[in-house]
Amino acid sequence: MTTASPLDPRAFRSALGCFATGIAVVTTIAPDGLPLGVTVNSFSSVSLDPPLVQFCLGRAAMSFEAFTTAPSFAVNILADDQEDLSARFSRRDLQERWAGVAVETWDTGVPILSGCVASLECDRAHLFDGGDHVIVVGRVRRLASREDGAPLLYVRGRYGRVA
């Protein structure tokens, strides 16, 4: 086992990379009416009653203000064949991300990506300070999930799949 100073950012990131996560694209609508989406792997459930989920968004993200002020957002949990969407929604050009992407809308009008293993439409409930990130908590108002397919995983800086 490699040991390093607990304050060494590279060692901290490497240690956290040992925890496999799923990959999601969180979507919303900007104040100007355009769709926004960002790839995240810091997503989890918070509560079953009421149904709450959270994701973390970097304060330096170009879409930070839109996501922290929008009344609603959707979490689209990517399937293992959607690695391209993960990469696309982590690019810098916010509108280029949407070229040719199939979406639908539900109650709030936020984009729901097609083909995901699960999607959750949420109303923003809380924002919490998370250092260089903000923790966005949403109350789930509608969801859909597939019985088939496996989620896309991320571990040690690489994509992975369920064996």
Results as ranks from 00 to 15, higher is better:
residue 134 V to S: 02
residue 144 A to V: 14
residue 113 L to N: 04
residue 108 T to K: 11
residue 152 L to F: 04
residue 76 N to G: 07
residue 49 D to Y: 02
residue 64 F to H: 14
residue 86 S to T: 14
residue 145 S to R: 13
residue 68 T to P: 00
residue 80 D to K: 06
residue 27 T to R: 10
residue 56 C to P: 07
residue 155 V to F: 02
residue 1 M to E: 12
residue 13 R to N: 06
residue 60 A to G: 06
residue 152 L to N: 05
residue 138 G to E: 10
residue 59 R to P: 07
residue 7 L to S: 12
residue 116 C to L: 09
residue 80 D to S: 05
residue 113 L to I: 10
residue 89 F to K: 09
residue 44 S to P: 14
residue 117 V to A: 02
residue 81 D to N: 10
residue 37 G to I: 09
residue 114 S to M: 08
residue 21 T to K: 02
residue 109 G to H: 02
residue 155 V to A: 01
residue 65 E to N: 15
residue 94 L to E: 10
residue 110 V to T: 02
residue 135 I to E: 07
residue 114 S to N: 10
residue 46 V to T: 04
residue 148 D to F: 06
residue 104 E to R: 14
residue 161 R to W: 08
residue 39 T to W: 06
residue 10 R to A: 15
residue 55 F to N: 03
residue 9 P to E: 06
residue 45 S to T: 08
residue 18 C to W: 13
residue 122 C to Q: 06
residue 134 V to P: 05
residue 74 A to V: 14
residue 8 D to L: 13
residue 108 T to Y: 02
residue 60 A to L: 06
residue 14 S to P: 12
residue 74 A to D: 11
residue 112 I to W: 00
residue 119 S to H: 03
residue 159 Y to G: 01
residue 155 V to P: 00
residue 102 A to E: 12
residue 137 V to N: 03
residue 95 Q to A: 02
residue 35 P to S: 03
residue 2 T to H: 06
residue 118 A to H: 00
residue 149 G to A: 12
residue 30 A to H: 11
residue 98 W to Q: 09
residue 34 L to A: 11
residue 28 T to V: 09
residue 14 S to A: 15
residue 130 G to Q: 02
residue 141 R to V: 13
residue 28 T to N: 03
residue 4 A to N: 14
residue 137 V to K: 05
residue 20 A to H: 07
residue 1 M to V: 14
residue 5 S to Y: 04
residue 133 H to E: 03
residue 149 G to L: 13
residue 85 L to S: 01
residue 148 D to Y: 01
residue 29 I to Q: 06
residue 136 V to K: 07
residue 83 E to W: 03
residue 145 S to I: 11
residue 71 P to A: 14
residue 27 T to I: 14
residue 29 I to A: 00
residue 129 D to T: 08
residue 96 E to Y: 04
residue 126 H to C: 09
residue 47 S to N: 10
residue 109 G to R: 08
residue 122 C to S: 05
residue 152 L to T: 11
residue 137 V to I: 10
residue 42 S to R: 06
residue 154 Y to M: 15
residue 150 A to Q: 13
residue 131 G to F: 00
residue 43 F to T: 15
residue 99 A to C: 09
residue 85 L to F: 06
residue 150 A to K: 08
residue 141 R to I: 13
residue 22 G to V: 11
residue 36 L to P: 00
residue 157 G to L: 12
residue 18 C to L: 14
residue 101 V to I: 10
residue 39 T to F: 01
residue 159 Y to R: 10
residue 158 R to E: 09
residue 2 T to V: 14
residue 18 C to N: 14
residue 162 V to A: 11
residue 153 L to W: 03
residue 119 S to K: 05
residue 162 V to L: 15
residue 140 V to G: 04
residue 129 D to C: 07
residue 75 V to I: 15
residue 82 Q to I: 10
